[in-house]
Structures are given as C-alpha cells and as structure tokens.
Design a binder for these strands. Sequence first.
DNA 1: TCTCTGCGTCAAGACGGCATCAAGATCCTT
DNA 2: AAGGATCTTGATGCCGTCTTGACGCAGAGA
Lengths: 249, 249
Amino acid sequence: MSPEPVPPEPSRKTPGPPASAPPAPVIVLIEDEPQIRRFLRATLGSHGYRLYEAGAGEDGLVEAASRQPDVVILDLGLPDLDGLQVIRRLREWSTVPIIVLSARGQEGDKVAALDAGADDYVSKPFAVGELLARLRVALRHAAAGDSGSPTFAVGGLRVDQIKRQVQVEGQDVHLTPIEYRLLTLLVRHAGRVVGQRQLLKEVWGPGQTEQTHYLRVYMGTLRRKLEKDPARPRYLLTEPGVGYRLAAE
Amino acid sequence: MSPEPVPPEPSRKTPGPPASAPPAPVIVLIEDEPQIRRFLRATLGSHGYRLYEAGAGEDGLVEAASRQPDVVILDLGLPDLDGLQVIRRLREWSTVPIIVLSARGQEGDKVAALDAGADDYVSKPFAVGELLARLRVALRHAAAGDSGSPTFAVGGLRVDQIKRQVQVEGQDVHLTPIEYRLLTLLVRHAGRVVGQRQLLKEVWGPGQTEQTHYLRVYMGTLRRKLEKDPARPRYLLTEPGVGYRLAAE
DNA sequence: TCTCTGCGTCAAGACGGCATCAAGATCCTT
DNA sequence: AAGGATCTTGATGCCGTCTTGACGCAGAGA
C-alpha cells in the first residue's frame, strides 16, 4: 500500500497524454482563513491532488455540487453558515467523505460534527502528515462507493436536490415535505431496495418504525403525482415484505 | 441522526422469525489492558452493542474471523503481535472498519496505522463520547456497504445483495422474502453444505428447526425460478440427509 | 420383492401485506 | 381567527405469499 496518493509522475514536462495515469483526486476545501488555505493549497497540490476552494459555507456547497469532489475538507469556523449546517446540507444529497478541521477540540464539538454526518475530525493545529493520512483513508472509502449526485433522472423523472425541484416530462411537480424526503431518500439509494424500517426511521424518526401504514399512504400519493399509471408504477417499485425501490434506469 | 446506535426494539410480539428486528452491532475488541477492557465492556454494553474481546493479536484475528463483527477496535500495544501486523493480517481477508486505540500519539504512528489499513485512530487517554461518535461513523460506513461487495455470480446466476436483485442469464428474477433469504444464506456459504437445521433456524426462526418440509417446498420454487432444468439442478444442490449447497463455480 | 425413509411436486386454503379512499386532526399562512 | 394545505388515522377490498396436507418417486436395506 503506497503511502502517497497518486504520485503524478513527480515532474513530467509534457502535459501530454494523461494516458493510463489515474485521475488526480478532487478535493473541495471550505475554509475562510487565507493562511491555512495557502498552506493547504501548496501541500495538497504538491501531493498530486486537485484542489477547489471556497471561503464560505454557501460557496462551498455550490462548489461541492459542481465539482463532485472525492473528498470535502471543511473548516467549522465559517463566517456565514454554522459548520454543522454545512454538513447537514451537504448530506441531504451527497455521501462524499467530509473531513472537518476545527480550532475547537472539545469533545462535544467532535461528537456533534461526526453525528451530523462528518467522517473525520482533525483539530487545529494539525500535523500535515496525519491530515494526509486521514485524507487517504477518506479516499479509500470514496473509492468503494459512489459519492452520489445532487441531480437524478430516469425516464421522464428528474429530481434536482439543489433546487429542490421535481419534474415529470419537463413539468414541475409540487411535493409536500414528507413526499420530498421520501423521494430523495429513495433517490440516494436509486436502484437498491430501501427497507421499510429505514424509510420510516429516516423520514418519521426512530420512534415510528412500526407505522408501515404511512408508507403505503405516501407511496400512493407519490405515485399519483409521478407515475403515468399509478397502478402499474415504472419508478416507485414495491418490494413486498421488504421495502421500496426507485428504478435506476 | 440519532446518537444511539440501534435501539434494540423493546419487545416484538411474535416470538417468530428473527426477521425484521435490527440486530445489535457486533464489535470485536482487541486489547490487553484489563482496566480498559472492563471500562469499554461496560460502556459499549450499555449503549446497545454486542462485544467480543480478545487479549492478544492472534486471538483477536480468530475472534474477528468467527464473529464477523461490524467494527474492530484494536489497541496497538499488544503483547504478542505488532499492532500493524494485526491490521495487515486482518486486511488480507476483511474490509471491516478498524478503529485503532493507542497510547502513542505521535504523528508517525498514526500515519503508519492509517496507511496499513486502519480507518481511524484515537489516542489514549480518550474521551468516551468521541470514541462512541467515531464508532457510529464506522458503523455508518459498514452499513453503507463499504465492506466488500456482496455480489455473487456462478454461471448465469447473479445475486446482488446490495440491490437485492437476482438475475438469471441477465434477466431479473423476482423472489419472495423467504426465497430470497434462503438463497442469500446459501450464497454466504457458497460451495459449502449448509445443514437443514441451520437453514430452518435462520430463515424461519429457532422454533421451526424440525419443519424440513418447508425446505423441500422452497428449494422447489427456487429451482423453478433459477434453474434451467429444475429436475437436474446446477446451482442448488441437495446433500441428502445433510442439507443443501450452492455450487461455487 | 417389499418396506421404509427422505426428497420432490402439486394444489388448496389461510393469512398477512399492499393499495386506495375518506374522514378527522394539525399546522401554517393570511 | 379563518382558510387551506398537510399529515394522521381508520376502514375496506384485493392479491400474493405462506402454510399445510397428500401423493409419487427413488434408493437402501431386509
């Protein structure tokens, strides 16, 4: 196992054919302190990563959506948004690994960030070598599974999780909050069966995992809004006794 | 996100199939200091985890192999084996998340452990809350399917346990819940014979281990759905008097 | 050859899960 | 405070799945 990520041929003169070289991992850095940005830009750049930067939470979310990075490095102390908010907003549509940087090293801060959906937490000041090692861990994880895209489309169905917009055959469809959460939950697992328990837990909360009735009602309304023939659904498929599945193609 | 792992479902009405109740996460702890073991035993136990312990590296590897845990917590300072050795040996056949505990907090130690294949590194003395949070992160990863791809294929038969999809000659085949559980149970032991008792116990519950009749009926329906010539099965083989076996290749 | 045992097949009925409708209850906006 | 949208809850019909029993068949042993 090489400790270095992707030694991009230390110094090739020719920008020529990137041929068989694996693509450089893409990282989005959300950090407002210019000093740290400069430092990480230099460090990560020299280790073969491609870096995109944002100085504020909102920008960072946009950047993460457009760049589809392999990893996001996030500073919790941002000027505009609460860092935890950034994590949660990101997790609404993406499973990209998030490494949190923070000047605060209190246990409570770490727990909050990790439970909000971060994958790792590094306190400032940090050791570069450790950060790089944790970055490699995150990349290993990212390589195992897809990081998810904020937009999804099958047939005539389009779901844009950034604009929070759903279309059928190009027509906007209005969904209620619960309908939307149910649909995006399925989108994030498109093609896979999602268990009734899991759906109930994530939409209605951990206390309602027995109310399978809710699912029937809401799958019904969703189908009426999204399917051409709700009785013979093309997108929202039932897996009897198990859960539901969103057709992937 | 609930901070608690998996509230162990207070009380099911039917004593029947172990089916839908989410099982308590299983953890293997490899640690030689009795004091820390006692402490973690109490802490993890009270948070709903099922803990198995080992006091040395070799034992730990055996334990990890037999218990098939969701997470391994590993102390680097073991009497018999070098901690890094344990990580590497484990990684030879398993992708289970590994959280390293260590009294040494040097950067070099962390980098070495993480690059050897560990997923996280916590220095002693550690804060319980943080360890629990990092444990939840590891479990999230495990649940997301980072851990190896349980897809199985022989001949024209394909079983994708992530998508819960079964194909024969590229054609989707619909299986009922019991059929699917029976098949995946065989898949997990592909090539080896699985006893009738075990099949009955794991699919119908511990109370039905005498109803070998069920097996005949369901092996029949499975063969009709999966085999080209159900009377001369290629995949689902009978081991008379013992059990059934899924052809491995 | 006969009998016993274990496996495979078929079919009928019981059972439970799913879809749908509709009526309260609740929340939010105006 | 009124109105509308949304969520919850109950009732009902239907369909697929599971269970259960009966029977045929093959192989082993007497």
